[in-house]
Design a protein around this nucleic acid. Structure first.
Lengths: 212, 212
DNA sequence: GCCGCGATGTATCGGACCGATACATCGCAC
DNA sequence: GTGCGATGTATCGGTCCGATACATCGCGGC
């Protein structure tokens, strides 16, 4: 998951760790609290070892001025490689069942602007199915096992059920939108030619179809 | 978290691993998919080593009938000890900031029937504060950094913001309800006078001192 | 002048939890 | 009589978190 998010973010610009964490937190704020350095740095090292990103100590722009007086630990800037972009594309293409759990879905969704329409649709439908299953499970418990559970547990289930129903509706809208809207499929990694606009996705969701 | 949930569940009845997982999944279905055996069994071992639960191989009721013909691996039934109950009470009393994240809150909430009212209130308010902070963060991003993000990411934030607002409202209701005396449930009065027989709520400091 | 303090910045360590996997038994439908 | 899904116990590698440590920088207050 983190690997995917990092590769996705670094395609927008090279960054150092701290910055990466901030951007990650901003982009994924809706689904995760904040990425821990305890996972970020080891993952960066792993990605570098795999050749998907390169690491470069920041050169002090004021060149010879500041030599090695205090052995300043410079910021380390990470840049994605061609292999890294390839890897990212591969991860998108693979997008399987693990992509449908809460975190996995959220992270993939956050990078839908870099995902082709067919895959977007596949992920949205997979997620919907998963949530529908969870919804049925909750309905079962609320129906059949209600008397075995205390009132607080039941209230928790009700709240969860409500969230499920709401998310299914949200997904329905997104799916309908994706299908009808003619998907100006965004910058495809690999297809070198053409526009390098990083955000020109189709307008998703939106739709204020509230009861008037 | 798992430790807490196991100690809580085993106070209702002794169980073996498989059963424990099923009950756990039913009780926490709203917040977690399913507990993995890869965490369940090691945790059981840890709890046993700490003396909070005891492990007993199930005795084949049909005693001498089935000796050691196939070296039948019997089911292992776990029972909570007095120290275990103490530990559970202690975990409730400690309930700090880690209790306010998604999973931690959910698990604690699921055992509110075994939690005294003051602690319930503290947890609900801590959770509310936390969600309010997340909400403000999302509003910030949607307000200030909106043009930096693509339409999908924005839609994700909007959906997250909506969920936050909804949860805050839910918590408000629960808190008001908790303060105004009795009744765990929020919207439905439903369950009238029924007394639960299996969950005897005799937690550390329940009963009187209610503020009508 | 200098002192604390919060933001920036890199990094490690132990532990919690997951997903895949393995293996064995039981009852039942085909 | 055989396959197959539910029941049942268990391990292993890997991901990620929370706590912690340490260093620099700019700023306001004393």
């Amino acid at each position: 998951m983190l690997e995917f998010a990092i590769l996705g973010l670094l395609q927008e610009a090279p960054m150092h760790g701290y910055e990466l964490r901030k951007e990650l937190t901003a982009k994924l704020g809706a689904i995760r609290a904040a990425i821990s350095y305890g996972s970020l740095y080891p993952t960066l090292r792993r990605l570098q070892a795999a050749g998907w990103i390169t690491e470069a100590a920041e050169t002090p722009a004021t060149a010879e001025e500041v030599p090695a007086l205090t052995s300043r630990r410079g910021r380390v800037v990470y840049t994605i490689t061609a292999e890294g972009k390839e890897r990212f594309a591969q991860l998108i293409a693979q997008a399987g069942p693990e992509t449908y759990d809460d975190t996995g879905f959220g992270v993939h969704f956050a990078f839908f602007a870099r995902t082709d329409q067919a895959t977007r649709l596949r992920i949205l439908e997979g997620r919907r199915r998963k949530i529908e299953e969870r919804r049925e499970g909750l309905r079962d418990v609320l129906g059949r096992a209600a008397e075995r559970l205390d009132a607080y547990t039941l209230e928790l289930q009700r709240h969860g059920l409500d969230a499920c129903e709401r998310e299914v509706r949200w997904l329905e809208e997104l799916i309908a939108n994706e299908r009808s809207g003619r998907a100006p499929t965004v910058p495809q990694p690999g297809t070198a030619g053409g526009r390098r606009e990083e955000d020109s996705p189709p307008p998703p969701g939106e739709s204020r179809k509230e009861r008037p």
